[in-house]
Amino acid sequence: MSSIQEVQDEIVSEFEILGDDKESTIYYIMELGGSLEEFPDQERIEENTIKGCQSKVWLIADEKDGKVHFQADSNTDITKGLISLLLRVLNYRSPEEIIKAELDFVERIGMGSIIGSQRSNGFASMIKQIKLYALAIQTKQNA
């Protein structure tokens, strides 16, 4: 498995290929959403939504072989694409790796100017929730 840094570098180079054309960048993000694994219907509930997102985002996590397994979904394709980017970097990693992860790709691809400030706040909420899940699982592992 590639390291967190290697995956981030991959993402950055993919976005570099897209260049400055905003429309193709958004198309690309929307397409990425298709790669998310099927989200269980029964988990599409209020308790699993991320607060601070304009669109609806559901995120759940469980432990698999000591690693954190995330599943997520959204009612908008762009948001789905954004979560899939985060999960590509952070899914199936140890809680410690996730908690310590520095997500420099966000700035390197210029996420703020791609998605705008309101969505950027939502994106920050997603990262925070992912880390909180990792922390909860780590606490359970150490108990």
Partner: peptide
């Protein structure tokens, strides 16, 4: 089959 946010963002790109 499309969310208004996605449509709005694509239009903004234009």
């Amino acid at each position: 089959a499309m969310h208004p946010y996605d449509v709005g963002m694509m239009l903004d790109a234009n």
